[in-house]
Every structure is written in structure tokens, then in C-alpha cells.
Write a protein that binds this DNA or RNA. Structure first.
Lengths: 212, 212
DNA sequence: TCCATTTTGTTATTCATTTAACAGTGCAAA
DNA sequence: TTTGCACTGTTAAATGAATAACAAAATGGA
């Protein structure tokens, strides 16, 4: 009961909280200090009720006439989803996708940093992308332990997914985000999220086909 | 009632059907001709019951002792989610992410082809990636209409998302997959799917934090 | 021949998530 | 004042999705 109100928050709400932060950022950049539930909702294509319900679940109250205080809410979401001491991420596979993620992500979050990249191709080792150093995979265990990295993003070609994820797990990675088209296996104590770009494209194609 | 059994298939089932095809492919590559529901399930980290239920919904029956016929099932899933005459896709933004998608995707599906790329940077125009030509965005309307492209993937930098999606819609795109960190707006007759890589990373980070 | 095993197909139940309904509140304008 | 409006916060209902439960069937042995 003490500080674990958070355990009962639905997964979907967790996902949205991260997106609310973006919506807040956008309004903050416009010079706004307050925001209404329906403004957040419109940006993210969901309903205002859902926004209010989510915020209720995390125990935040807005003001009746001015809506939610952007700074307060950003801080509260941070308290909930960020780790206070920060977390480090490694990219496995410094190809196009790995670089894209680094460029999109790096510097966007205080508490979450991409701390290393790994590849098998020696040409990559010399380069540094947005401040991220690329090491040979053989050094993975060493670098990951030294830097205390717990999260790994898998962006190697599909046929190297299994072998690479084995290395990740062995090195002590506790959360894997797999962008490879190949499903992988991890032990029970490792959190796994798989995202398949091909399926997403097919899904869009399906609904376009069904509508016309 | 005639040929629209398909309308009542849950969205989540549609997403999974596309993934079943991958699982089937993997088993087919091993030389197998048949597959059990629990084999599909194990690969995709779901339950066998769910697989059977999904296949029931699309009206496919396996054999009691040998499971499902891989070829038949691939064909049936194709009948359901693919468009018989094929569909074309355009990539807006030929940066790292655009190239990554082309390399992962191109050639993997008979009925779905990436038919053009667009960018603002003239350096990109000369190149061709995995058979995909890159055109200047100014030519978008022309190229898209000429080739009959209906699906667009948005991979430009976040600050160009709004302007680019406007161009896409104007050119006649009916399905948008937005990989940009910026949420966009489309008219009602355009299907929109947004995927935010940053949120996915944060989600993994959150569950890693909560477990330890 | 019959029984145990393994797997499918389907209905019923439970669980999760979204949406609806509405009470409460503060401000502004009349 | 007081009335109307535009919000929030919360409970209740509806929808959607996953899981459980189990009947039915085919095979391979005993």
C-alpha cells in the first residue's frame, strides 16, 4: 500500500503515460503552462475520458478551470515511469535501424540513455553516432557489465537474432526490444517486447483494402 | 453474409494472422509441411488455444493428428489479408529508418511492394535502395497517382511530420503508418497507425525497473 | 478390439479495457 | 446573486479479448 499504488495500473495506461508526456511537451513548446484532457486526447487520437481516467489512476488532479499543470504532470509521469537513478540502453546491430533509433532517441530523455552500440562489422567500430560508441559483439559482456546496461534493443538482421539475443541475455540484459522479423526466446526473468514492422505494414494494407 | 465473414474478425486476430504467416515460413524452411497449434504458439509467445481460436474464426480446419497444413494455411491467410491485385507502398523520408524498412521488407511479400521513396535532400535522388527509386517530395502527387500507391510510411524527422502527411493525403494516400515521434492528423477516410519507438523503449525500461 | 493419448474445434467464463453516465465545482456573465 | 457553462473525477455499464473447459476424433499400442 505504501509506495506501490503503481502495481495495479493497467499496461495500456503505462503505454499511454509515455505518450502523454509527448503531448505535454508539444503544448509546452507552444508556451502553454496548462492543458485540458481533450487537448491531450485530440493529439493522441483517443478520448478525453480515457485521459482523465488514466490521470485519476496515477492520482493526479487538475484544476477545474485551467486543466492540468503541464510541469507538474510531466514530473509526476517521470516519477512513475522513470527510474530515479537512470537506466542505460544498448543497441545490438548498428545498421540503418540501429542508427535511426539512436538519432530519434538520444538526448530526448534524462533518465534513459543509449550507452553503447554493438556490431560484427569492423568498419562500424571506428565511428561514433550521436555520442554512441560502437563495440565488437565479442566485447558485449564486458562493456554491458562495466556500464551496468540492463536494456537491449535488437536491430541485427533476422538471421542473427537468436544468436545475438543469447549473447544479450548472457551479458546480463534484463529487457529486450526485438525489432528483428524473427521471434526470439528469453528466460522468464527477462522482459521481452517484440515489434514487427512487416506486420504493421500489412495491417495498414489490410484496413486500406477493407475500406474501399 | 456472402464473402464478408471477414468483417467480424477482431483486430487483434488480424494482427496475429500476419505473424502466423511468419511462423509458418520458419517451419516451412525447416522442411516441415505440417504444424501444430502449440508450435505456432511457442514461437509467438502466445497460447495454443488462441491460435486455434483465431484459425477457427477464419474458417480453417487442421487435421487431428498432423495439425495444420502449412501451404494451405499460408494461402488462406493470404486470401484474407492480401489484396489480390497487390498494393503499393511509398516511403516518405529516405533516412536511416526509411532505408531500414526497405531493406527489411522489400521482396518479402508478393502482394505488397515498396514502389517509391521520397525525400527533400537532392543527394538521395540519384541513389536507389533495394530497387526503390527516390524522388523529390515535390513529385509526390504525380508519382503516387501514376503508380497507384495507396499506402505511405512516414519516416521523416519529427518536425516535418505534419507537412509531409499533408502532402501524402493530398496525393491520395489512404493508409499512413507514422514512425515519427510526432502525432499527426488525417481525414476520416484515411487509416492511420502510429508507432512510437520512444514509447516502446520506455515501456521496456519501465517493466525492467518494476521487476527488480 | 478397445483403451490411452494427443490434438482439434467450440462454447462458456473470466479478465481487461474502453466508453458512458453523471455528480461536483468554480468561474463568468447577466 | 444566480444561472449557465465547461471542465474534472468517479462509478457503472458495455465491449472486447484471452483463457478455461470440454467434447469429438484419429491414431497407435496393448
Amino acid at each position: 500500500m505504501e509506495d506501490r499504488l503503481y502495481k495495479n495500473i493497467p499496461h495500456k495506461t503505462i503505454e499511454r503515460l509515455s505518450q502523454y508526456r509527448r503531448a505535454l511537451q508539444i503544448y509546452s513548446d507552444k508556451g502553454k503552462t496548462n492543458i485540458f484532457s481533450h487537448e491531450i486526447a485530440a493529439l493522441l487520437h483517443i478520448t478525453a475520458v480515457q485521459v482523465r481516467r488514466d490521470l485519476m489512476l496515477i492520482g493526479y488532479s487538475g484544476s477545474l478551470r485551467k486543466g492540468y499543470d503541464i510541469n507538474d504532470l510531466v514530473m509526476l509521469i517521470g516519477d512513475l515511469i522513470d527510474s530515479p537513478e537512470g537506466q542505460k540502453v544498448a543497441i545490438f546491430g548498428m545498421g540503418d535501424l540501429g542508427r535511426a533509433i539512436i538519432n530519434y532517441f538520444q538526448g530526448k530523455r534524462d533518465k534513459l540513455k543509449i550507452a553503447a552500440g554493438f556490431d560484427t562489422n569492423p568498419e562500424k567500430f571506428s565511428h561514433e553516432i550521436a555520442g554512441v560508441n560502437c563495440y565488437p559483439v565479442e566485447k558485449a559482456a564486458e562493456v554491458i557489465k562495466e556500464k551496468g546496461i540492463k536494456i537491449g534493443i535488437l536491430t541485427v538482421p533476422g538471421d542473427q537474432a537468436d544468436e545475438t539475443v543469447r549473447i544479450m541475455v548472457e551479458a546480463g540484459i534484463k529487457g529486450v526490444l526485438n525489432y528483428t522479423p524473427t521471434p526470439v526466446e528469453v528466460p522468464d526473468d527477462v522482459y521481452l517486447e517484440e515489434y514487427n514492422m512487416i506486420s504493421s505494414i500489412e495491417k495498414v494494407a489490410f484496413y486500406v483494402k477493407e475500406r474501399k
